[in-house]
Design a protein around this nucleic acid. Structure first.
Length: 609
RNA sequence: CGGGGUGUAGCUUAGCUUGGUAGAGCGCCUGGUUUGGGACCAGGAGGUCGCAGGUUCGAAUCCUGUCGCCCCGACCA
């Protein structure tokens, strides 16, 4: 086996025009390498104006024993060999080529390639793939949520559902299809959702020339729900007659469809899973209290279970839910310092009750419109979780939301001790399951598959299981087991007395949970900055390398004159928006750095998902 | 919708300029050796080269059309 030497520092990740993951090296010759590197096509022109045409060239080397292929891009002199109309295969051909090879001494240090700082969006996709959470479906924008990903969602559902019940809500289910006319009822709502609706126009298929074609056109098209305010509003209108019928406090777990232009797994998909709470109240105050109460539920859930410190506040007018009077949000910062709206709670006023005719006779006998709210979180929380905590070895799950707390990996190098090791592993699993964490039995997986121990460990690292326990023959004689934590470097392991492990597990899990929250909080604090000048603001949000922006920026706390025009300008200039107007006990007045106009308080600005 | 790319096995892809039996690595299967951190050896399965026409004795390769996907923009609680 040859050894692989390469100046790894000179490779940086680059998103090529083909969209494939690559590595980039400076052009030049003479980088020695040994082994087979397969050169494929040219993908990007480097210096079109140079006398010698230089291109980045995508290369791919397959290295025996590397456990995978390496991709890279190398610059070399290229020539264009053919052109013409139509599809061009083999447009570019290799003529000169700088030698290159990826550093194999650097291989497998991390499970995920590229690393976060190299290419955050690509890293995100690779984490999902490595942890086996989900994959893209054949229908653009839709995803298949695989068992491990769905298990996380089920955990979220379980906790949230309990919290909703504790706050007096019950579950119900409303139809997927909404009559087109319902959506027309609320003007702002139409405006907000019309552009991304899937519409059902037929109810039958007929065979024509061997092809199935839609037939049986509907008299009124049906919209696949992008959200359910209108159809639930229609039901509430039927149900509410008297003030005694109020409040109605319902939630539904459902899928919704919004035809997104640019889907990303979990973050923005055409179809996604969520819960939507819809309540109707007798008074404005009651509805406002409800809106805020559910925001607090989300905030608590994010902090206590997902280990996500979230900012809470109100959305500016331009970010408000279409049809709402006020939209409140929880806003998280993820590791590329961007903001992500992780949940929203809307005070809808009487807009929807007027649109749907939710009327009741009040205590004074007068007919009034109900006051409604809606609030929701979605599978986007999974994406948020991934981007907030995961590292270059894959997913990192907070124990309180992890589908499994512990995985036990029996190490069975010798046939004669194998049975004893497996038995010990099962015994430990049993006693662990008898112990509790947060009032629930500790959930344990025993991975007894007959494959290499290293492979097995890495699989669970990538899946983000909080605690791994290895048990081998040596442990049997010593009465110990090797305990590793996902929040610590993967090589680190504590040999704990096996008998102590069940009683200590809850403490370990608690500590991991706390560490993740502390880490995420410290990260956010580091990248949350008060900014008072326009120059400082623009500098904060301008990457040093505009061609391939590095991770930069964060949350800027800046004053604002309160007008949408300023927001619009900033958005156009920097792609930065107001994420929320934080709730302030005592707002600090100041001066809008963009206009010089007076400002009531600082607001949170950031780039966002 | 505009601009730019791309399509060969589950994944990453070679082959195309110059037409002649479709190759590789990873992954997968089988057997053996292994196993305390991403194993090795041997054997094996897997491809109507996106689709449809055309040129040709012969097309992954040339031509025409078409579809999908990716990136940038527009758009987006």
């Amino acid at each position: 086996m040859p050894s692989w030497e390469f100046p790894a520092s000179r490779i940086t990740a680059s998103r090529m025009c083909s969209g494939r993951r690559s590595a980039r090296v400076p052009d030049g010759d003479g980088w020695g390498f040994c082994g087979s590197v397969v050169v494929t096509g040219c993908v990007k022109e480097l210096k079109p104006s140079s006398t010698r045409r230089i291109f980045y060239q995508r290369i791919r080397g397959c290295f025996p024993g590397a456990g995978g292929c390496m991709t890279g891009v190398v610059a070399g002199g290229m020539r264009r060999t053919s052109a013409g109309s139509g599809r061009k295969k083999g447009l570019y051909r290799r003529s000169g080529l700088a030698n290159m090879c990826a550093s194999m001494s650097d291989k497998q240090k991390n499970a995920i390639s590229p690393r976060r700082e190299e290419d955050f969006p690509e890293w995100y996709q690779q984490v999902i793939r490595a942890a086996d959470l989900a994959e893209n479906s054949e229908v653009r924008g839709c995803m298949v949520i695989k068992p491990w990903g769905y298990a996380i969602w089920e955990r979220m559902q379980g906790v949230l559902d309990r919290m909703f019940k504790e706050t007096g809500h019950r579950n119900a289910y409303f139809p997927l299809f909404i009559p087109l006319s319902y959506l027309e009822k609320e003007a702002a709502h139409v405006e907000g959702f019309a552009k991304e609706c899937a519409v059902v126009t037929h109810h039958r298929l007929e065979m024509k020339d061997g092809k199935l074609v839609p037939a049986g056109e509907l008299t009124e098209p049906l919209v696949v729900r992008p959200t359910s305010e209108t159809i639930i509003g229609a039901a509430y209108a039927r149900w509410v007659k008297s003030w005694r019928d109020l409040p109605i406090l319902l939630n539904q777990w459902a899928n919704v469809v919004r035809w997104e232009m640019r889907p990303r797994l979990f973050l923005r998909t055409a179809e996604f899973l969520w819960q939507e709470g819809h309540t109707a109240h007798e008074t404005r105050e009651e509805a406002e209290v409800e809106t805020m109460k559910m925001l607090r539920v989300y905030e608590t859930f994010a902090r206590e279970f997902l280990a996500l410190p979230v900012l809470t506040g109100e959305k500016s007018e331009s970010e408000r839910f279409p049809g709402a009077l006020q939209t409140y949000c929880i806003e998280a910062m993820v590791q590329d310092r961007k903001a992500i709206q992780a949940g929203t709670s809307h005070f809808l006023g009487q807009n929807f009750s007027k649109a749907s005719g939710i009327q009741f006779q009040g205590r004074d006998g007068a007919v009034e419109h109900a006051w409604t709210t809606s609030w929701g979180v979605s599978t986007r929380l999974i994406g948020t979780l991934i981007m907030a905590h995961s590292d270059d070895d894959g997913l990192v799950l907070p124990p309180r939301i992890a589908p499994a707390h512990v995985v036990i990996i029996p190490i069975t190098p010798k046939e004669d001790s194998k049975a004893a090791v497996l038995e010990a592993a099962e015994a430990l699993a049993k006693s662990l399951r008898a112990s509790t964490f947060e009032g629930e039995p500790v959930s344990v997986e025993v991975d007894a598959r007959d494959i290499g121990g290293g492979v097995k460990s890495w699989e669970w690292i990538k899946k983000g299981v909080p605690v791994r326990i290895e048990i081998g023959p040596r442990d049997l004689t010593q009465g110990t087991a090797a305990v590793s934590r996902r929040d610590r470097p993967h090589k680190e392991k504590d040999f704990l007395p096996m008998a102590d492990i069940p009683s200590r597990m809850a403490g370990i899990l608690d500590d991991i949970q706390a560490q993740l929250l502390a880490r995420a909080t410290a990260f956010r604090e580091t990248h949350l900055k008060p900014i008072d000048s326009k120059e400082g603001f623009y500098a904060f949000f301008t990457p040093a390398n505009s061609a391939k922006p590095e991770i930069h920026g964060g949350f800027a706390l800046a004053h604002w004159n309160g007008t949408p025009e300023v927001e619009e300008q900033i958005k156009n200039d920097l792609k930065v928006t107001i994420r929320c107007i934080p709730f302030e006990e005592s707002p600090e007045p100041g001066v809008c750095p963009f206009t010089g106009a007076p400002s009531r308080q600082r607001v949170v600005w950031a780039k966002s998902y």
